[in-house]
């Protein structure tokens, strides 16, 4: 039932992209997003396409997993495209009733659709090839300088990884309690809104009780193993840049360079 919901949709595979340092993937994705929002012209679009599909190919994740993420933003994309199409002033192409499609509108609609699609595909590559724990690790290391100005980076990262770790547990727990109450004749589907909310009580009370119990147990277990925050703490798998990480940085920077060159020096529509 609820088991099929996955957050942090990691797809295990043995690929170069999987092995990259999570920091590379974080910064790389950031640069890639920047590139999407400043590209102009067909050459840049080509560069983005080649770059994106090369990375997808390298990641060894089946393409249908990438496309899954697109489904959720389909409506957003349609609305954006329609607004751009009809509401951009400019040279008129077709018109009927009070609506008119302009050349600029058409161009904007296509560019926005491409941008959003590429954005989702690109970030999917990151979430599909990096476990949530690697991501928080990467984030902690990348944000470490902020701890000098008093930002509790370690605590935030620890909270994030605990929260991530607990999501599947709580989903499973919800599923179990739901089934246990359904076995006692509870009904979570029918009825109006008020009835539905009322019917959630047999689910929510045990869920909260168990969440608090688990939190207590975890805190106790951590203290029993002498956990006392981040200062002086070492890691079992410390993040270290490898040769391939440097290469990846170079590739992404080069790609961003190409896009910027296209933006500044090539005339539209090139």
């Amino acid at each position: 039932m609820l088991r099929d919901i996955t957050l942090g949709q990691y797809y295990p595979a043995d690929s170069v992209i999987h092995k990259l340092d999570p920091r590379v993937k974080l910064f790389g994705t950031m640069l890639y997003i920047i590139s999407l929002f400043c590209f102009r012209g067909i050459v840049a679009l080509l560069a983005a396409t080649v770059f994106l599909f090369a990375v997808i190919r390298l990641s060894k994740v089946p393409f249908r997993f990438m496309v899954k993420g697109l489904r959720t933003i389909m409506i957003l994309m349609l609305i954006t495209a329609v607004f751009n199409l009809f509401l951009t002033p400019g040279e008129e192409l077709v018109s009927f009733w009070k609506l008119k499609i302009t050349a600029e509108g058409l161009k904007n609609a296509i560019v926005m659709a491409v941008r959003l699609t590429y954005l989702i595909l690109g970030t999917s590559v990151m979430t599909l090839t990096t476990t949530p724990n690697q991501l928080t690790d990467g984030l902690e290391k990348a944000l470490a300088p902020l701890s000098k100005i008093g930002v509790p980076v370690h605590a935030i990262a620890m909270m994030m990884s605990i929260a991530l770790r607990f999501i599947p547990i709580l989903i499973e727990e919800t599923d179990k309690i739901m089934k246990a109450q359904m076995a006692r004749g509870a009904d979570f589907e029918t009825g109006n809104l008020i009835a539905k909310v009322k019917n959630m009580i047999p689910l929510l009370v045990p869920l909260f009780v168990s969440a608090f119990r688990r939190a207590d147990d975890l805190a106790m277990a951590m203290e029993a193993r002498c956990y006392h925050g981040g200062s002086g703490r070492t890691k079992m798998k410390p993040l270290r840049y490898q040769k391939r990480d440097g290469l990846a940085y170079l590739t992404v920077t080069a790609y961003l360079g190409v896009v910027l060159v296209c933006r500044w020096f090539l005339p539209w529509p090139m």
Binding site: E173, K176, I177, A180, Q181, A183, R184, V205, P206, S210
Partner: peptide, 13 residues
């Protein structure tokens, strides 16, 4: 068909 789950005490509310 009555079903008593594992650790059924967790369903009390």
């Amino acid at each position: 068909v009555g079903l008593v789950f594992q650790y059924p005490e967790h369903q009390l509310f």
